[in-house]
Design a protein around this nucleic acid. Sequence first.
DNA 1: AATGAATGAGGCTTCATTCAT
DNA 2: TATGAATGAAGCCTCATTCAT
Lengths: 210, 210, 210, 210
Amino acid sequence: MLKKLTQEQLDQILERATEEFSAKGPERATIMNIARASGVSVGVIYKYYADKEALFQACLTRSLGMLTDCLEEATKEGASLEEVAEALIRIAQFFAKEHPAHIRMYHAITMDAEGGSVSEYARKIEAVSAQLYTNCFSKAKAEGSVRQDIEPGVFAFFFDNLLMMLHFSYSCEYYRERLSIFCGEDEERDERIVQQLLLFLKAGFGITKA
Amino acid sequence: MLKKLTQEQLDQILERATEEFSAKGPERATIMNIARASGVSVGVIYKYYADKEALFQACLTRSLGMLTDCLEEATKEGASLEEVAEALIRIAQFFAKEHPAHIRMYHAITMDAEGGSVSEYARKIEAVSAQLYTNCFSKAKAEGSVRQDIEPGVFAFFFDNLLMMLHFSYSCEYYRERLSIFCGEDEERDERIVQQLLLFLKAGFGITKA
Amino acid sequence: MLKKLTQEQLDQILERATEEFSAKGPERATIMNIARASGVSVGVIYKYYADKEALFQACLTRSLGMLTDCLEEATKEGASLEEVAEALIRIAQFFAKEHPAHIRMYHAITMDAEGGSVSEYARKIEAVSAQLYTNCFSKAKAEGSVRQDIEPGVFAFFFDNLLMMLHFSYSCEYYRERLSIFCGEDEERDERIVQQLLLFLKAGFGITKA
Amino acid sequence: MLKKLTQEQLDQILERATEEFSAKGPERATIMNIARASGVSVGVIYKYYADKEALFQACLTRSLGMLTDCLEEATKEGASLEEVAEALIRIAQFFAKEHPAHIRMYHAITMDAEGGSVSEYARKIEAVSAQLYTNCFSKAKAEGSVRQDIEPGVFAFFFDNLLMMLHFSYSCEYYRERLSIFCGEDEERDERIVQQLLLFLKAGFGITKA
DNA sequence: AATGAATGAGGCTTCATTCAT
DNA sequence: TATGAATGAAGCCTCATTCAT
């Protein structure tokens, strides 16, 4: 066919590529497999992406975008630190279970030593969430709704660390198994984790209900 | 006969291989680069390691061994949860700064979707620390030195998550930069992180001095 | 798309491969040489054949097929043992002179100690000709047109032995030279061999014209 | 040790090398295996043989020598054509069963398209036996003890062909199986083959007892 | 003179990329 | 413009050969 690729097909390419990349790693993933899975030819992928690396980066960017879209929902104006925390925890669980490949892509970025254009982008996003969380803590501290001896940035860092590990624990095979080792595999486990994590954070942050 | 490789040369191979593997990932790393960096021929590497995979495993085993040796020091008998926590935090900082490639090796296997014999080994180690930390919490709970509403396994999980992220934050380029975004880059930053994390953990765990 | 290899090119590959394999043996033959000789790239050979072994098998199958096609012509129904013998002798001479590489392929598998799937196939063919020749002798014996004290299978074996050596004598360098030592190199040699061999066989088999 | 290799060790090398070469083929045979099997070092083999090829040639020459030594015994002065034939047939059976590796080496020579120094040697031997057998036939023809319409050289060729195939049939795996297909595998098979072959030859040569 | 570990050229194979259709 | 077969560079691995001891 000589028909231009539809938006749907382009999405399909990125989705299948994300699956292939996150399942086999960027090296073992092959363009031919991605093309086959997407129902397009190898050649056309090269019309849209300069090379395999560029396709990988496009997948990363897309996954990151989907993730941040989700996060933005959770951090609406006016919510208390506790509310935000719970929302973020639940989103982490949900998104990572629903879209494990996308989280694995995010995990993949963190391997990238060279820091290509995507890491650039990832860092911007990281800066945004750092700002966001830090502000939450600053505001809460100013309001007196958390303990006064915390450094907002550092606590934001701890909080984000816990969230990242939660993401990985629900999407990357290795972390998934580690989660089972620590927390078991029963039905209610995930809810218990939410509750325990909230306990931990509330106490750790020194949150006091107004 | 031609002189056998000295122990030093063998160490050199593992060290350079660890660097190559952790910098480029197991796929992009090439035996020829490792050989060149180690000052030996390609062939001799195959005298000592069956194939690239075996060399990678040897590097991993070595890195994880070095790491666990360090951790064991921190978790001597009789230490309180608080003491253990502080020791582990300081070791994480120290080891990751000193041997970043080794931590990156660990990070690398967490990417491995298939979970070969390598992750097998890693999982054993994970099981050990899970047991160790969980016991600490169980004991502390029994003693009444932490809050009573915690689940030891789940809190051990949170604790280990924070430690892992600390390791990565001092060794992987991406996490290193993220750390700067959250916590700045001043001289005292690392000490502040220790102090703040201890604050966070003590409160979060509900540690009460006897 | 880039034009698919023509049938001609595919034949070319098998023909050149057969030459390379039969000249150097399956081990010393290299895919690169075959590709170069066939005017194609190395990679494309792997599109059509899984590996060097598969290519070798394809060459063998083709060579043995060509050979058996020839043999089948010679052993039509109703021909007397003498007629069959003469036809097979002439075909041996003709085919081996015309397609020496194909006979050398056959020779090559007889060296294969391990007897992989290739010899498997060869054995089937061997079984066919064993059956065929043995039947000829059985029938002739029953008709009384050969001596009565022969064992059909054993005489079929001798006959096939003579034919095989004839094939080799016209295609393998070593046997070719040996042939010259025994029988000279004059113009009429090959015809003399036919006639002498027929004399030998007729008397040896005790063939009596009805 | 710094002791020169004993004659025994040198023999050992050739014997083991012959086994390795004939079992795996000249390519897959490795010098290291041969050294190990012979109980000597790799290096010392290179003191005695310039390279692997030279060792292979030495094995060939030796095997050929052992074979011809055997044949010479069978063709003593004064024996009749029939006596010589039976002796050669029985020797072929015996030697090939006893020393299959050596016959396989002989078989290997016939693959050698390039015609190195061994083929040279082999051809000389071939010339000797050609001469020998041809003379037998010439003498018998002159004596009137065989039919008069034979060409001695050509019949000598047929005879040698049958002997060679007999050798191979008792030593090379492929030919061994082919033998079973044609002649079965019972206890008396080998003796039957001798008797049938003698029948065939006597009739084919037109031997008349004086 | 023998040893046997180290060397490194060379072959197989894969797959990112190209390009004729 | 899309196709997908062909290309060929590059990596893994083996093993003949070398050479320091």
